[in-house]
Nucleic acid binder design. Sequence first.
DNA 1: GATGAATGAGACTTCATTCAT
DNA 2: TATGAATGAAGTCTCATTCAT
Lengths: 231, 231, 231, 231
Amino acid sequence: MSISKFIHDKTATLSAKRERRKEARPGELLDAALDLFVEKGFTATRAEEVAARAGVSKGTLFLYFQSKEELFKAVVRENISGRFKEWNEEFETFEGTAAEMLSYCMNTWWERVGATRASGITKLMMSEAGNFPEINAFYQQEVIQPGQTLIRRIMQRGIDRGEFRPLDLDYAIYSVIAPMVFLVLSKHSAGTCGDPTLPGNAAKYLAAQVETILYGLSVQPAAGKPAKGKA
Amino acid sequence: MSISKFIHDKTATLSAKRERRKEARPGELLDAALDLFVEKGFTATRAEEVAARAGVSKGTLFLYFQSKEELFKAVVRENISGRFKEWNEEFETFEGTAAEMLSYCMNTWWERVGATRASGITKLMMSEAGNFPEINAFYQQEVIQPGQTLIRRIMQRGIDRGEFRPLDLDYAIYSVIAPMVFLVLSKHSAGTCGDPTLPGNAAKYLAAQVETILYGLSVQPAAGKPAKGKA
Amino acid sequence: MSISKFIHDKTATLSAKRERRKEARPGELLDAALDLFVEKGFTATRAEEVAARAGVSKGTLFLYFQSKEELFKAVVRENISGRFKEWNEEFETFEGTAAEMLSYCMNTWWERVGATRASGITKLMMSEAGNFPEINAFYQQEVIQPGQTLIRRIMQRGIDRGEFRPLDLDYAIYSVIAPMVFLVLSKHSAGTCGDPTLPGNAAKYLAAQVETILYGLSVQPAAGKPAKGKA
Amino acid sequence: MSISKFIHDKTATLSAKRERRKEARPGELLDAALDLFVEKGFTATRAEEVAARAGVSKGTLFLYFQSKEELFKAVVRENISGRFKEWNEEFETFEGTAAEMLSYCMNTWWERVGATRASGITKLMMSEAGNFPEINAFYQQEVIQPGQTLIRRIMQRGIDRGEFRPLDLDYAIYSVIAPMVFLVLSKHSAGTCGDPTLPGNAAKYLAAQVETILYGLSVQPAAGKPAKGKA
DNA sequence: GATGAATGAGACTTCATTCAT
DNA sequence: TATGAATGAAGTCTCATTCAT
């Protein structure tokens, strides 16, 4: 192998590496920004911190994002999971009971979204929605509505098939949604709600919630009717 | 009545009013601060805004609170409900089923805490806990732990009395906690989780959650066992 | 005189002083800004320099002007002389020859505008007009047009009365305008056009220009017709 | 013809083209820089803009000029017309009246300097001279002094020959200089002085100025003496 | 006590300049 | 030689905090 070969190799390698870095930069910045925004909030996060965590200088951040606010928007867009749409489609062909679908949904949601860093978006939006009305509208449309629609369809099917008791879905859907939201918030909120070890035992947590929910929603023999509390 | 009497009267009146106002000032500032911190976050809220909303000048705020951070701490301290402690004591003498106690608790919590502005603290801590470890520890101790202890004791009693099925309380308590946390977050998060009208229909929402939870927790005839999800 | 009298006096004095300073601040800042903008240009002038020259800190500047650009606009507005309007009115009642009016105008213009710091605006607009189209339009309307209108009216009257020879005023007005513009630019341009001592001898300069212009404009006996150059 | 010949040819062609471009580069950059500096000022012009307008990358600019400031100096040096020196020499052998020489000078100056992009240097120096004392000194020596010297010599000759009336040349020269400076400034100042259409009608403008100046300077019969202004 | 003018540290953002490719 | 990604000094602007009144 000649020297020129080495040179050529080196050039190619370095060039490729730089190319790869350039491609990777926005992603690295978005990752760093997601973490910090979720941890400290938008305003409390300094642009320089984001850059430093991504391993670049202050100026580089602004090479890829016009402003800190644009960075925020990009973080939300990038990490918003379009999976509810996908799951809505899956729902059409799903064979199994509504209970199975519900359980499947919650567990898959955890694996594919809740357990990933993307789940931080939930906390982020909760904290910052008021400061970013525009991006909040986008989030409503892309996440909240598809998510609620999916849950509602599953539960409606359960009722239609006689699996679930008659429910006012306007409220019943939150029996499913609240535990999921709660889980991701536990993950990102320094123990401010729930045990910090919850996310580590997400499977157990989810199993417990699913079991109670399904018991709670399902058609009950008359004998099983619980005492109604009255405050 | 001499002129000086008038003057004195006037002085007395003004001074009394000022005295009263002086007492009220910190309260007005704390109220204003709570609202703004909850709405916009700690860092994004300007001290001057707080002062303006409380109807005083910037300088006055710093007359009562050493710094913005001290103001934050005071806001949290002031609005932390010590009611869980109170309810924990009430629990000892409560006569009725565990189901009744649970229902009573959730509804009373809403009336006395959730429906008040103090509920904003939940969102506030969730957003800012990471930036204020010290105040977070305080919050854990004053709110989270007593709250979880109360729920746990009620549920344990339900199990002990045969009302509820055997439950792993480390996870089961969240069937009760999650819907409550979710409700207050809905109230303070611009629709970022759940319907913005939820807080307005809190009674219906809570009734639906309580019903499902109680169905879900109660001892079931074998026939009522729901299908288990696969995942 | 009692001690309380002293106290009262002191309070009043200090209070008055502070009040006076507050009133004076914008003016002091505008003066400083005018000097620096004229000397170094808008972009090359740092906001902090302006503040320092006005004897205040960086932050204070932004207490009075929303941004450096607003400061610029205020500087122009503040220093634009509306005198041409005033002189246009004076023209109506002026008794004397057109030549006298022209001479009066140029000399008065120097005393009231050219010799003051406001004359820096001419250079400032020349340098920055391209960067501030909006403020340039304002300047056109408030200064350029009234100024040209006045000169044109005077010259037209001169022609009408047979004092001046027939002139194409679209071009002839600049025989008057150019020397005046040139004089203020000499004052603010580090000798880049003309002798730096010109402004110090403005009276002589103006007298020389007026004399030549009036000789040049006035009706001439046929014998005096100068040789026409042809390039 | 072998393949290698082709290759060689191609290489040669490319290399020739590159050679030519290399030579041209600084010129393109200087042209771009002149336009932008004149239009927006030195500080407000970004190096990248200059490069973009010249059709090269940011890095290339710094290959040819050590810094933005060096670029500025080069722009001034490059566009400073040495023509006054040339005309000063021409003056020695010029046959014709002083009036003719003056007219010739002004018109030739417009054609060779004023009408070209190099005329922007006048505005540029006026705006930036204060920030670049060194380059200003150079400009004084290369342009201002030779220019004034030429005008002065012509006028002196006019007086000596009895064409012009006795004049204080320290001031009289500006009767010639001011209209020329005014014309180029009109061209580069967004209408901030004079009609924006002036440069388009430069010939007419110059003719009018020349006529008035010559009438104004020439020896007048006593009867033609204009009224003197009061001030 | 109350005010609000003033301060200056600190954050965002720009851009001249460098340098690996 | 040419490029353009990266840098970091420097500038604009904000805002918590102080202090004279």
